[in-house]
Nucleic acid binder design. Sequence first.
DNA 1: CGCCTATTCTAACGAATCTTAGAATACCGT
DNA 2: ACGGTATTCTAAGATTCGTTAGAATAGGCG
Lengths: 221, 221
Amino acid sequence: MPHRAFKNSLYEQFARIGHGVSSPKRIELLDLLAQGEKKVETLAEQTAMPVKNTSAHLRVLRQARLVETRRDASSIYYRLASERVFRFLRDLETLGRERLAEVERVTQQYLAGRDSLEPVTLTELRKRLRDGDVTVIDVRPRPEYEAGHIPGALSVPVAELKRRMKEIPKKREVIAYCRGPYCVYSVDAVTVLRRNGFRARRADKGFPDWRAAGLAVAAGE
Amino acid sequence: MPHRAFKNSLYEQFARIGHGVSSPKRIELLDLLAQGEKKVETLAEQTAMPVKNTSAHLRVLRQARLVETRRDASSIYYRLASERVFRFLRDLETLGRERLAEVERVTQQYLAGRDSLEPVTLTELRKRLRDGDVTVIDVRPRPEYEAGHIPGALSVPVAELKRRMKEIPKKREVIAYCRGPYCVYSVDAVTVLRRNGFRARRADKGFPDWRAAGLAVAAGE
DNA sequence: CGCCTATTCTAACGAATCTTAGAATACCGT
DNA sequence: ACGGTATTCTAAGATTCGTTAGAATAGGCG
């Protein structure tokens, strides 16, 4: 094999990965799958795409071997192919944040005052949780909590927050976490909690980041 | 701004990075730029593309803010936009190697017996260099050596190796390094050296990896 | 100032990709 | 075996991308 042909086929392979993350919808799908496995229909709902379209994008991700599938009864569940895929995804997002001023501009615009919610790092959250002087709430949809969450966290999906607020002790500080650095659930949750007299802060990252950091996780219930 | 529009514009930004690395030729360009800044013409030669084509790909990379430019006299020099771009590139390649069996297959096929060349890790190389019991040679083209190299390494481009072999002491072990894990220069160099009675091994990674590890670098001469 | 060189910009064509409708598949429950 | 459900496969139109020719630009040099 001549030198040039070798390089061509090598870089062609690497480009398969790149192609996987070259579409906004596919990155969003990967971000969702970082929460745990999901059916095609669920992914279609959560990305606001028709099922057929979702299926087509998932096929591209499968060809790039970034996701894998499992069949259960009549449904097919997708999941990230490995923890490294998640880390790569976050590297991509971090690079985007570093290089593209638009990322900062867009998030500032939508999450005006996000920084005023006194973000807590995961390390800090872990310490506070060990000290036992804080209530940690997981504000993601219930199925994602069940697929995996921070041990000791209470599941209060943001949609149920107003109704279930009385379950949360008012004395202690509350820390809300959700899907990741750009997820709005914890922002919404903390805003609502503060309006109702709670001392609340948000975690600067989400559950997948916690798991990727090698910290203990709980599942089920 | 509604929730969905926010997500769309956010993921659209991240996809700009993904789109930058979705083409084999663009990944190859980034890999070359990891060696140091280069002119468009040089990049065109080294990727075996017409200049116009190279320029078009570089434009895409510039739009993704993965590269930056500098003008010197009549030439325009491209470079990676930051060290993090290099790390992202290597993460992409590592993920490719993990996920895509074809990467291993292609490299094994072309670099048959690459593993028999007893690869040395950079940490090991550094120790051996400090102990002073080894000759380290940089077998990349001269301009890349001049743009940055491992301190103490001797520049012996693989094209000049046969002619200049007598400059290398035969008693001591020789370690050859080049552009990176998939670069063939060091493989070729070690093969030639061994055929001529040298005790030679190759570094498992290249100069950009050395620099990214925060180790000392030299330039010029 | 005008020519020379390196590079980019504009434009156009073919190839690849996205989206989505309709048909096909695979497995469950009965 | 049969019908139902979730999903994929096939195919086609619309869009984007890759490639490359020709014109334009920017700066150095005589």
